[in-house]
Amino acid sequence: MLYAAGLFVVASAAFYGVFASVAYPWNWSGVWKYRFQFGHGWLTTMGLSLVAMVVSIGFGFVLMLGRRAPWEPVRMACGGVVELVRGSPLLVQLLIGHYIIAQALSIEQPVVTGIILLGCFEGAYLAEIFRGAVESISASQLEAARAVGFGRVQTYRFVIIPQALRRALPGTTGQLVSLIKDSSLLSVIGIEELVQKVKIMNSASYAPLEGCLPLVVAYLVVTLPLSYVARRLEGRFAYET
């Protein structure tokens, strides 16, 4: 704890020194004036990230099951979706998804489109994290599950998922942290989330950087506790195999 505090002081000092060396003219009044806008942006970011997390975990789980399905066409289709979504930029997916697909389906709400697109994008990564965890369960465990008379669904529920959960946890946490940060791209489809609010604030107050520091803090207050909770969970699931 003391060590962490020390590190924090050293990092802050280095950071301050760098800014001092280029003699950056700080002007905090603009930031203070826009504090409610900032708060509103933060709530938007966190709200839609939270819903997108649920979507991404659900979508990732379904894709993982699809990639392990006993039917070749399903496996191929899900594999294709994963490669396509992971292999193309989120920015392009958002633009096409919002301006073309959502228009075609007449979904009027950019927030709805944004949450679905972000959830699917991160879900494709989660699918592979989940698949890695599931496939690391040894064949002897699957045989033991068959031997005690479990069917397919029971094997997933009682043997595979409880053991895979622990192995998927570190990767999943990282992906969810990425999701929160990736949500800043949603500004391109007109959602005024945190980063967009800060950009507006910076240009309105002629202060190009001041808003960025609260921005860093605003993300860290969520991502750090998320990582902490995940580590605690990992500890709780810890058992030797």
Partner: peptide, 12 residues
Amino acid sequence: GFVFQGYNLFPH
């Protein structure tokens, strides 16, 4: 009922 060489109990 089955018993295997490597015990195969569920570790969790």
